Computed example of a mutant assay.
Amino acid sequence: MTSTPPAGLRERKKARTKAAIREHAMRLFQEQGYAATTVDQIAAAADVSPSTFFRYFPTKEDVVLTDDYDPLMVAALRAQPAGLSPIEAIRRSVRELFGQLPDAQWEQERRRQQLIASVPELRMRIQQQYADSITLLAEVVAERAGRPGDDFASRVVAGAVIGAALAATRDGRTMADGATYFEDFDRALALLQAGLPVGPPEV
């Protein structure tokens, strides 16, 4: 008789396979270029079949663009106290999610963001991801406020937050610059929370 692995074991094995595919893909992209790297090469390096690759990533682009941050952000936001304002709840969630990331994870993100910035088709696809992130964040903001999922005000809040994330990127910096980016993003959220007070520069 054969037994089915427990759900927790299955999920861990799937997570390891997904991480291995992504790791080998990024290595090959760095060594021989994104355009020159094929799905078959990535699958072979990760010791999986091409069909297994496509079970985890629908396209080659997705192996770069897919990350685990959105569901973690949603979970962190849902866990915040109900009485917090939307921006304060989001600030706390961002701190919890990104404030303690190890250096190795920031380095992985740096490589990923550099690749996205250098490949036109990835830059185009990331724009759609921003729109998807706004929709997802808006739904959770509305949920916390007891509003409908398509609430306009909640979508505006979510759009402002994603805009703040983009505005925190300066001089080619991305989220991968770790603490520096994280601090700037928090400052941007603080400005939103304060109602964007913009006046003449201090002398």
Rank of each mutant, 00 (worst) to 15 (best):
D70A: 14
Q128E: 04
M73A: 04
A79L: 02
L65A: 08
R92I: 00
F54A: 01
Q108K: 10
F98G: 07
Q105M: 10
E121S: 11
L136M: 15
R55V: 14
Q127E: 07
P81E: 07
A45Y: 02
D67Q: 10
Q100Y: 01
A79I: 06
A82E: 13
S118I: 03
A45L: 06
F54Q: 03
A104P: 00
Y130I: 03
P86I: 10
E96R: 08
Q128K: 00
G99D: 05
V48L: 10
R111A: 07
P120Q: 10
L77T: 13
L115R: 03
Y56N: 13
P58L: 03
V140I: 14
S49Y: 05
R78Y: 08
R91N: 10
R112M: 02
Q80W: 06
A138W: 07
E61I: 01
R95M: 02
L97C: 08
Q80F: 01
I87L: 06
L84S: 04
G99N: 11
L72H: 10
D103L: 14
Q80Y: 08
A89W: 00
S118N: 07
D62M: 09
L65I: 09
I116E: 00
E88V: 15
V64H: 01
L65N: 08
P71M: 09
I42D: 02
M124R: 15
A43G: 04
T66G: 05
A104M: 01
P120I: 11
S49F: 01
L101M: 12
A75L: 12
L77Y: 13
F53T: 02
D67R: 05
D62I: 07
A104S: 14
R92Y: 00
Q113C: 13
Y69S: 14
F98P: 02
Q114C: 07
D47M: 09
F57Y: 15
A79H: 11
W106H: 13
E61W: 01
E61F: 00
S118V: 00
S93R: 00
A131Q: 09
V119A: 06
